[in-house]
Amino acid sequence: MRVQTEEWRRFIPGVRMYKGKKTCFYNGEKLWDEENRENLIYDEEELHSWEVIIVLPGVEVIPVGTFSGCENLKTVIMSDSVRRIENCAFEKCKSLAFVKLSRHVEYIRGWAFHFCESLTSIFIPPSCREIGDKAFQGCKKLIILHVPQHTQLGKNVIADTALIKASFFQTDDDGEYITREEVNDWIKSHHDDNQFSLHRACSTFNPLDEVIFDIVKRQGLKAFNKTDSIGVTPSQYLSNNSYSEIKEQKIIKRYILHMMGEII
């Protein structure tokens, strides 16, 4: 009998230990009955035990409330087949700290990541057409959010987050804001100033090695540690970017060799 490899086992649906963590390999089945407000396959205790969710290839939609309340969930990795994340799909996943979205996701519906209190960063791919109302409301630690210019944003997408608190916009006691269009424009443009060119290059969906290197050549290595208007450095953007394979240390090494060549 042929031995199953870890790589092959990744594509088998179900729940099992994977790399030392309780992992759900999700194949698109309906886990939550929204009408009757009940779990369909796994009980609440089982759902609370999951640490990682890997959405398998072929899944196009994550239905309403599918992983809502998975309190121990820390990591979500989606295959690039996912195109829609429905309402409240990951609501109240309080330990969720890392999300890699599908490169082809088109819609993130309202309250999709509502009150994911440990989430610090999210990078939205260019394929995304729309993010619904309050999609990231209550993500109290969320400070890094990259959104393409063409993506439509709903109401209070970043209400009660570190990002809105670091801005100059006024909010009410629930962290909600009434200047919807102004905030949504600011989310997409707060790096437009030339002094934040390295921040912009490091926080894009697909950062380019040559672009980053050219900026560092002009601004020097200290630019990696310069904070922007919300207190985040280019180093933080680059290290949190789930789609980037660029390593800051390689850029630094290349810069040093470049400078040594000029000196010699």
Rank of each mutant, 00 (worst) to 15 (best):
G65A: 09
G69Q: 02
C70A: 10
L73G: 10
L73Q: 09
K74D: 08
V76A: 09
M78E: 09
S81V: 08
V82T: 08
A89I: 01
K92M: 12
K94E: 11
V99Y: 04
R103W: 03
R103E: 13
Y107I: 11
I108W: 10
W111C: 15
W111R: 14
A112Q: 07
F113W: 01
F115N: 15
E117T: 14
S118L: 05
L119D: 06
S121V: 04
F123M: 04
P125C: 00
P126N: 01
S127P: 09
S127L: 05
C128W: 03
I131R: 07
G132Q: 07
D133T: 07
A135D: 03
F136W: 07
G138K: 02
K140F: 09
K141N: 11
I143H: 09
L145H: 02
H146A: 03
P148N: 02
Q149R: 12
T151M: 00
K155P: 03
K155N: 13
V157T: 04
T161I: 06
A162W: 09
K165S: 12
F168V: 13
F168W: 15
F169S: 10
D172T: 09
E176H: 12
Y177T: 02
I178P: 11
R180Q: 15
E181A: 15
D185I: 15
D185K: 15
H191C: 09
D192L: 12
D193V: 07
N194A: 14
F196H: 04
S197Q: 15
L198C: 04
H199R: 05
R200Q: 09
A201F: 00
C202L: 00
S203F: 01
S203W: 04
S203V: 07
N206E: 14
